[in-house]
Amino acid sequence: MAAATGMIMLAALAILTPSARGLDRADFPPGFLFGVATSAYQIEGAYLEDGKGLSNWDVFTHTQPRRIKDGRNGDIADDHYHRYMEDVEIIHSLGVNSYRFSISWARILPRGQLGGVNSAGIAFYDRLITALLQKGIEPFVTLHHFDMPQELETRYGSWLGAGIREEFGYYADVCFKAFGDRVRFWTTFNEPNMFAKFAYMLGNYPPARCSPPFGTCNSGNSRREPYVAAHNMLLSHAAAVENYKKNYQVKPTDILPL
C-alpha cells in the first residue's frame, strides 16, 4: 500500500509540476552555490593527535555514554583528519561547489587563550582549505558547532561565564588571521538557540545542565541558564563580527552570519 501511494504521489507531482522532473544548473542564477555540510566532532576523529586538546564532546561521550543513542563517540568518527583528501574528492564528484565545515576549537587552541596556538591544527585546516579551493569548492567555515576545549567548559561552565566571550573573541581572531585570506564566508555559531536548549534546558548536550520538569541533571537551572548562555553567545557573535568587519573583511560581499 505504501509503495502504491508513493507512486501515485510521484505521478501527481510530475503532472502538476513538470519542471520538477528535470532541473539543471541553467535553472539557477549565475553564482548559485550547491553545497554539503559537516561538523568537526562528527567527522574528524584524531581526537588526541597532533597537539589537539580534549573537547567537551570528547569528555561527554566518554563519561556519559548513556546520553548517546548507541553509546559511541567521535574518537575516530569518519577519520576525516586522515582522509580529508578522499572526502574532498567525494564532494567534488557530487558536482557541488561549496562546503560548510566547522573548525575544532580544541584543535586550534587546546587550552583556550591561556595556552599556545596549535600549529598542527592550523596546518590541517590550511591543507583542507587549499584542497577545496583547488577543486573549485568555496569553503564556508563555522567557528562553533557545539564543541569547545574541555578546559573552557570546566572554567566557565561553557557559555555561562562572561569570560567565555573573550575566549571566543580570541579564537575567532586566530582563525580570521590564519584563514581569512582564503575564506570569504564565516558562521560564528551553528544553531545557538538549539544549543542553548539542548545543553542548558534539556541537558542532552554538554555541559548537560538542566532541572525538573525539563530533565534530570546533576546541576543546572532550565528556566534561567539557557538565556544566560544565549546572551553570552550573542555578545560573542557581535564582537567577532565587529572585529571581522574592521580588520579582515576585504569585500562587502564577505559575510559573517549568526
Rank of each mutant, 00 (worst) to 15 (best):
K135L: 09
P207A: 11
A46C: 03
F179W: 11
G215D: 05
T188F: 08
G74F: 04
A199Q: 03
R100K: 12
S39I: 01
P212V: 05
E167I: 06
F176K: 00
E242C: 08
L132R: 00
V183F: 10
N56M: 05
I68E: 01
I90H: 03
T253V: 04
G22S: 03
E49Q: 13
M85D: 14
V117P: 00
L23G: 10
A120S: 07
P206H: 06
T154G: 11
F198P: 07
N232R: 07
G6K: 08
N97D: 14
Y244A: 06
P206K: 06
C210M: 07
R223T: 14
I122V: 09
Y227Q: 08
R83K: 10
I137A: 03
M85G: 07
Y205E: 06
N118I: 00
A238F: 05
F140E: 00
T5Q: 11
A3S: 08
E49I: 03
L152T: 07
V141D: 01
I255S: 13
N232C: 12
E153L: 13
F101K: 00
A230T: 08
G121C: 04
W186C: 11
D78K: 05
Y170C: 14
W57I: 05
Y205L: 13
N193C: 06
G157E: 09
L256D: 01
Y156P: 09
F168R: 06
H237P: 14
E191P: 04
P252T: 14
R223S: 13
S219F: 12
K135F: 02
A20T: 03
G169V: 09
Y205C: 01
N97C: 06
G74H: 00
I137M: 11
K52V: 13
A120P: 01
Y170Q: 10
S236I: 04
G95N: 01
